[in-house]
Design a binder for these strands. Structure first.
Lengths: 197, 197
DNA sequence: GTCTATAAAAGGATAGAC
DNA sequence: GTCTATCCTTTTATAGAC
């Protein structure tokens, strides 16, 4: 692993675990066993590390997120809930301390530079587009004229809101109930589509 | 205003605007025109300021949040959307930089002390209970056996997820679409209740 | 209770040798 | 490209006079 890869790897984990502000350069150095000269040679500032992390998430969405969740799933709507199930696993395995790395950063960074803000937005966009492709694949199971963009954004909405509550209460049941409500919404939509047909 | 009130007032605003970590004691002092001796006389540590802020939100939910939103509204389900409308106003008036003060803190503070965590949780709980009272008041308009607790949590889910996306994209339309999807969900529920009757 | 001055530590970043 | 040492700023918190 190159120093750059080491740093990105460590930063992805630490920003996720502790947040951006609470992760110091010293934390990154001790975790990677590098010296400050090496880090600053690759990343001129701490924000550049953040940018690298957000680019890594952006570029790794297929491999890191979608493929693991969708390996065994064919049904397009079940793919959506498999994706949410992946988040559930992370929440549960971390005793409800980890959430969505992008969502946490999005709320932690109050006045991010445009480059950072755009990367946060792009990460959300790609996530939403992946869900939207599932919705399009569901075709006539959803009511005619369904706004698949708005609905896929709503899946992200439900995920992020559920993660936030599970973390705050340190109880994954809050996430489960949010997913359950989203499932109910999809069930009603599928039922409405059936009746119209 | 007592020094204590001045500090809480300033801290509510600054934690909301800039977050907890990015608000320094010096920020609070300059905003309140107090000296550090006065602040530390009342609040032994910065975290005690945070606790005071969270207690203020907890104790002020009726006066600060619910009464302003519900002044003109009688219909219980419209009350819910009036509450969400209050958040929309805040988002829009702040150019999508302000969100929900509790939600931002909940994601920013990664390993809060139990006292802080409990206060965050209590704030969410009270918000959810207020929505749940609306759902109970809606009575037969919702399907028999509706889990009003889970549904009221889902309203919070939608609000927080919508706020997060609006802030990230700096575009209130993301919040609007989340609320619109929630409205669609309620419309489907009301329709299902009607058909069953 | 409030004032000023300052301690004590942490954090981001740089310099210059190798 | 990497090493060590260190600068400089910010930040929380304290001391002790008034």
């Amino acid at each position: 692993m190159t120093p750059r890869e080491k740093i990105i790897h460590a930063a992805m984990e630490l920003f996720w675990l502790k947040g951006y502000n609470s992760t110091s350069i010293a934390d990154l150095l001790s975790r990677t066993q590098l010296n400050s000269g090496s880090l600053y040679h690759v990343f001129p500032s701490k924000q550049d590390v953040l940018i690298g992390v957000l680019e890594a998430y952006r570029d790794g969405i297929e491999e890191m997120l979608l493929e693991p969740a969708w390996g065994q799933v064919d049904d397009p709507i079940e793919k959506i809930f498999a994706l949410l199930g992946g988040y559930r696993t992370m929440i549960a395995e971390s005793d409800c301390t980890y959430g969505c790395p992008i969502g946490s950063l999005a709320l932690e960074l109050h006045e991010p530079d445009p480059q950072v803000r755009d990367l946060l937005a792009v990460n959300f966009e790609n996530w939403v587009k992946a869900v939207q492709r599932c919705l399009e694949a569901a075709g006539p199971r959803l009511p005619k004229g369904t706004d698949t963009n708005a609905l896929s954004e709503f899946v992200l909405t439900a995920m992020e809101g559920g993660v936030m509550q599970a973390r705050t209460h340190r109880d994954v049941a809050y996430f489960d109930r949010a997913v359950e409500q989203l499932r109910a919404h999809f069930a009603l939509l599928e039922q409405a589509a059936k009746q119209a047909a």
